[in-house]
Nucleic acid binder design. Structure first.
Length: 469
RNA sequence: GGCGACUUAGCCAAGUGGUAAGGCACGGGACUGCAACUCCCUGAUCACCGGUUCAAAUCCGAUAGUCGCCUCCA
């Protein structure tokens, strides 16, 4: 097992990762609220969490990873006035909530597939776990950590010795109206209390409702993650991941309710990915326009170019998106893949000398998932005094974590036979023209092909052609 | 108002006390009818000020700028 050092939001320090159970990592990820497409900022988190998971596996750990799908209860505000995001999505598209959930869940995993993000071992929709939520809330009421008011069930943050474990907030200084569209919920005893179960939502058209001891209603957002994590990973969690914005209140509330419920410490490490910004600030779905993977594809960027864009930076740094930088990364990616493709297969594996690079790569990952440094090791390998077979083998191992399809055989696309024949004929004509030094004609042929989306290149071995994507 | 993060060449970025990795772009060169590809060469004293130290991009303090969170958000 190789050592992994991680920044822990809980302690605000980089510390060596020590699992509860030797060699095993129990990992939980806050999944998407499936009311709309994911934008590339959302996906930055999932890419970096994917790298984290794969880094653990590379280091020799056995990982069990769980992710929820929020398909109910995520309101636009935690106050009772908040509107359910799922319902907003359904109204917007004149569909049922279940249709919306299914559609955007599929879209999310399709984006993940394109970005080589591994699907977690367990993916659990919140609506599958209503009995677990109810069980947990019942115990919290029994033990005095929760109360009912105005028909809803609230968590009583005053009962905790320490509520702000992740962030150094001061209750007196909290501004409830920091966002001006948020109304204060008058049922709460403390302004940091949060809803565990809703029955009195003023939105009577809420489609999804369940029976509960407190009346027909639906669960709050925070309870989902706690209950789903405990359901699949038990009472001890090694690491919990999410976007930085979840530190407060979502993760703070998760800790509050989970530890109140369990009666002991719950999760040792908290991993948070910083945001992707654009030049106007944070990317946000509620701003209107947002960037999606398919939009990048339509603009001619392979999704893995975006993955590389993320890996080039560090997960704990704010990253600013721009097409200029993406163009840069696109060139980097294409050069890198081409260079690797030109490696031969010859030679016996030089395991002794490969060890140095394996260590450097593992060291970069173990250094708080320093992906930028890990990429440098890729370049070091390419320049190393190793035979091609050894280089290939190393890059193949590294790609288990980087997942950039570095060594993937570029499968020759099925090309229409007649098109191929036509292109070959044109190339032959151009060859003759070039021989006769009729370069105007040669260039005309090249332009004609280019207009049809075919690019030709003259190499020492002759002229090659490819379809432009 | 409170809490927190960041600031290294045109851009991305490594660096966790011993005198600045890597990548992309630009420029120069080789190759080429030209172009593309490929190969070679080329650049910074680390936001600013002060301090600690034999030694600081790296530690401490102050200043400035950028950004995030403070119940929509990954």
């Amino acid at each position: 097992m190789k050592e992994i050092n991680l920044y822990n939001t809980l302690t605000k320090k980089i510390e060596p990762f020590v699992a509860n159970e030797v060699g095993k990592v129990k990992m939980y990820t806050c999944g998407p609220t499936v009311y709309h497409f994911a934008h590339i900022g959302n996906l930055r988190s999932y890419i970096m969490e994917d790298v984290l998971e794969k880094s653990f596996r590379y280091a020799g750990y056995d990982v069990k990873r769980v992710m929820n799908i929020t398909d109910v209860g995520h309101l636009s505000s935690d106050a009772d006035s908040g509107e359910d995001k799922m319902l907003m999505g359904a109204k917007r598209e004149h569909k049922s909530v279940m249709e919306i959930a299914a559609f955007y869940r599929d879209a999310f995993f399709e984006d993940c597939r394109k970005l080589n993000i591994k699907t977690p071992d367990v993916v659990e929709p919140a609506t599958n776990c209503i009995p677990e939520f109810i069980k947990m809330i019942e115990k919290l009421i029994e033990t005095g950590y929760a109360y009912t008011a105005g028909g809803n069930v609230y968590f009583d943050t005053e009962k905790l010795e320490r509520y702000y474990v992740l962030s150094n907030q001061n209750e007196e200084e909290l501004m409830v109206g920091a966002r001006d569209d948020v109304e204060e919920d008058i049922n709460k005893k403390n302004k940091t209390d949060f809803v565990l179960w809703f029955t009195k939502s003023k939105f009577d058209d809420q489609e999804l409702k369940w029976e509960s001891p407190w009346g027909t209603g639906y669960p709050g957002w925070h309870i989902e993650c706690s209950a789903i994590s405990i359901k699949h990973l038990g009472e001890q969690l090694d690491i919990h991941c999410g976007g930085i914005d979840n530190v407060f209140p979502h993760h703070t509330n998760e800790i509050a309710q989970s530890e109140a419920y369990l009666g002991h410490k719950w999760c040792n490490y908290w991993f948070h990915v910083l945001h992707l910004n654009d030049n106007t600030g944070k990317m946000s779905k509620s701003k209107g326009d947002f960037l999606t993977v398919s939009l990048l594809e339509r603009k001619g960027y392979h999704p893995l170019v975006y993955r590389l864009f993320c890996l080039q930076s560090h997960y704990r740094k704010p990253l600013v998106f721009s097409y200029d930088v993406l163009d840069n990364v696109k060139a980097t990616y294409e050069k890198l893949v081409k260079k690797i493709a030109s490696l031969g297969e010859s030679g016996e594996l030089e395991n002794e000398r490969m060890a140095e690079y394996r260590e450097a790569f593992a060291g970069a990952l173990g250094n708080d998932i320093n992906t930028s440094q890990a990429l440098t090791v890729v370049y070091d390998v390419l320049k190393a005094d190793l035979n091609d077979a050894s280089k290939r083998a190393l890059l193949n191992e590294f790609d288990a974590v980087l997942s950039l399809d570095l060594t993937k055989e570029t499968e020759s696309e099925e090309v229409d036979v007649r098109l191929a024949a036509y292109v070959e004929e044109m190339i032959e004509k151009r060859k003759i023209a070039r021989k006769e030094k009729d370069f105007a004609r040669a260039d005309a042929i090249r332009d004609e092909l280019l207009q049809k989306g075919i690019e030709i290149k003259d190499t020492r071995e002759g002229t090659t052609w490819s379809l432009l994507s």
